[in-house]
C-alpha cells in the first residue's frame, strides 16, 4: 500500500505540492483529478523519486522511500508524452525494465511477448518507434510500464494525447488491463470521464492541494465546496 503523508514539494521558488496526503490500497486504482497546472504530474514524480520532497513522507507497506533512489523504488511510470526510447525498437522498449532486472533472455522474450499480447500489439516486436501511430505508442508505453510487473504503476494523463474515438476505445482496454491484472495504479488526469472510467477512487486536486477524496458518487453527493461542484459540473 502506498502511503503519502502530508508532503510538500518545491520546484525552484514555487511550492507546487502543499500538504498532500493520499493512499492507494494494493490492487486499487486511484485517480488524481484536477485542472492542468494543479501539481498532479509533480505528485507522480515525487512518488517515483524524480523530484525530492521538502517535508512529509512517502512509504510503501510501511517502508520509508524518501532515501531510496528512483531506480530501486520498483514503481512504474507511464509518461504523458510516453518517453519511448527512440534508439530502441518496440521489443527493446518493452524489455528495457526486464533487462535492468537481469531477467534471463528466454524469460524476457516470453514476458515481452505476453505483455504485447495483453495490450493488443502481438508481433510488433521489431517495429521502429518512429513508425508507430499515436494509439500504438500509448500501448507500447503501457506495455513497457507493465512488463517488469512493478508493485504499483503510475499513469500520467494516459489518454491525454489521443483523439476522441481512440480515447474511448483505449479507456475500456486500459481499464480491463488494470483490473484483470489486479494492478495497483495511480492515475493522473484532467478529464473527469477518464478518471471515472479508470479508477475506483478519486482525489480532487487544486493548486497543489487535495481538496476532496472518495468515490465519484460520494463526492457528487457531498461536494466539499463550490469549486468542486463547478469543476465536476
Amino acid at each position: 500500500m502506498l502511503d503519502v503523508k502530508s508532503i510538500d514539494v518545491r520546484l525552484g521558488e514555487k511550492l507546487v505540492l502543499r500538504d498532500v496526503t493520499l493512499t492507494v490500497g494494493t490492487g486499487q486504482t486511484v485517480a488524481v483529478l484536477g485542472p492542468s497546472g494543479s501539481g498532479k504530474s509533480t505528485l507522480l514524480r515525487a512518488v517515483a523519486g524524480l523530484v525530492p520532497i521538502e517535508s512529509g513522507s512517502i512509504t510503501w507497506d510501511g517502508q520509508d522511500l524518501t532515501t531510496v533512489p528512483t531506480h530501486l523504488r520498483g514503481f512504474g511510470l507511464m509518461f504523458q508524452g510516453y518517453a519511448l526510447f527512440p534508439h530502441l525498437d518496440v521489443f527493446g522498449n518493452v524489455g528495457f525494465g526486464l533487462r535492468m532486472a537481469n531477467l534471463p533472455e528466454d524469460d524476457m522474450r516470453r514476458r515481452v511477448a505476453a505483455t504485447l499480447e495483453l495490450v493488443g500489439l502481438d508481433g510488433f516486436d521489431n517495429r521502429s518507434i518512429a513508425d508507430l501511430s499515436g494509439g500504438e505508442k500509448q500501448r507500447v508505453a503501457l506495455a513497457r510500464t507493465l512488463a517488469p510487473e512493478p508493485r504499483m504503476i503510475m499513469l500520467d494523463e494516459p489518454l491525454g494525447a489521443l483523439d476522441r474515438a481512440l480515447r474511448e476505445r483505449l479507456m475500456v482496454d486500459t481499464r480491463r488491463i488494470l483490473s484483470d491484472g489486479g494492478v495497483t495504479a495511480l492515475v493522473v488526469t484532467h478529464d473527469r470521464e477518464e478518471a471515472e472510467a479508470l479508477s475506483d477512487r478519486i482525489a480532487l486536486m487544486r493548486e497543489g492541494s487535495i481538496v476532496q477524496a472518495g468515490t465519484l458518487p460520494d463526492i457528487l453527493a457531498r461536494p466539499a465546496d463550490a469549486w468542486v461542484r463547478d469543476f465536476l459540473g
Partner: peptide, 15 residues
Amino acid sequence: PAETREAARVLGASP
C-alpha cells in the same frame, strides 16, 4: 528529452 532518461530510471536503470 529529460523524460527519456527519467523513464529509464523508473524502469530500474541506475544513473
